[in-house]
Design a protein around this nucleic acid. Structure first.
Length: 302
DNA sequence: TTTATTTGACCGCA
DNA sequence: TGCGGTCAAATAAA
């Protein structure tokens, strides 16, 4: 028993460490701004210019205008009226130095409590799937520097649900979304149950993090999604038997990798989560949803 | 009209 | 020099 408690504490510590990039434990999670239920990349946008804007000379103006989106603090060296030595006066803010980052492998890349806006996508050398680049949706309003990249892990398509490697760069500096406290966020009301897949390839424990109110048992949590959490490039130190605990509104379950093989995919393993359903990730050919649909703790307490 | 996404070009770092 | 990250016009959806 003491052993289990110790593991819980260990898990808690790790979760907290991870969640420093996510909603702060003591304060309401930032998420929450009313989000659109549908923000599926594949259904909107899609425009693409034919010519290169950089062939034009009005870049400086556009750059200056664009600069308004970024916080002054984020660009301490930016001069509002610099002689444009080149077409791009605004230079990388976060490329020069490696920023602190955290890596997370998950089947639900959007399930992190924050809203993100995609600003780029790129096919990475040697990667089967393109990498998507997101920044915090509060970057414009509050100058939040948080960013993340989402890339589907290479697989032969045999694994389902697909796993994504999410790398968080820079901590959120945005405060809890005020709007979120004024109006409830829209929770995805997907009616599809989450089909549990046996993480056959996993030997590491699988950490599942879901809102505490979403399920009543760790097993359900584990069934809701499978998320392997890693910090940096290191494997989590989590090990051991199934553990369930509550962590600031989050219910976490650690499922030893060995149990994965015992999970048989199929309808029998579908789990319906009352009042909170995780969104089933669509096939990778589909878009990666940007907005996150998570119940802020403030809402849970109501 | 506003908002969000797509996507080729640009640019810095390794 | 190549790769990865970012920019921003174009464009579709809301």
């Amino acid at each position: 028993m003491a052993l289990v408690l110790g593991r819980e504490e260990e898990l808690l510590a790790q979760l907290r460490a991870l969640l420093t990039f996510l909603p702060p434990p003591a304060s309401p999670p930032a998420p929450a701004a009313p989000v659109k239920v549908e923000s599926i990349m594949g259904t909107s946008g899609g425009g693409r210019r034919l010519g290169s804007k950089r062939d034009r000379d009005d870049d400086s103006e556009a750059e200056a205008e664009q600069h308004g989106d970024e916080p002054a603090a984020a660009q301490p060296h930016y001069c509002p009226h610099p002689p444009p030595p080149c077409k791009r006066t605004r230079r990388r803010k976060n490329k020069k130095k490696r920023q602190q980052s955290k890596c997370l492998v998950t089947t639900v890349p959007d399930f992190d409590g924050y809203q993100w806006r995609k600003y780029g996508q790129k096919q990475i050398e040697g990667a089967m799937y393109p990498r998507s680049y997101y920044r915090c949706i509060q970057s414009a309003k509050q100058g939040c520097q948080a960013k993340r990249t989402v890339q589907r892990n290479d697989d032969d398509g045999a694994t389902a649900p697909p796993e994504y490697t999410v790398v968080y760069v820079a901590e959120h500096t945005c405060t809890a979304n005020d709007d979120a406290l004024e109006a409830p966020p829209v929770i995805l009301e997907t009616t599809t149950s989450v089909v549990v897949r046996a993480p056959a390839a996993h030997t590491d424990p699988v950490v599942v993090v879901v809102p505490a109110t979403a399920t009543t048992s760790a097993a359900a949590a584990a069934s809701a999604c499978s998320t392997t959490v890693t910090t940096g490039t290191e494997s989590p130190a989590i090990s051991g038997d199934d553990v369930a605990c509550c962590c600031d509104g989050l219910l976490a379950a650690v499922v030893h990798g060995g149990c994965g093989g015992s999970w048989a995919p199929g309808p029998a393993d579908s789990v319906s989560v009352p009042s909170f359903r995780l969104q089933e990730m669509e096939d990778l050919t589909g878009p990666i949803r940007s907005p996150v649909h998570v119940v802020p703790r403030a809402w849970l307490d109501r």
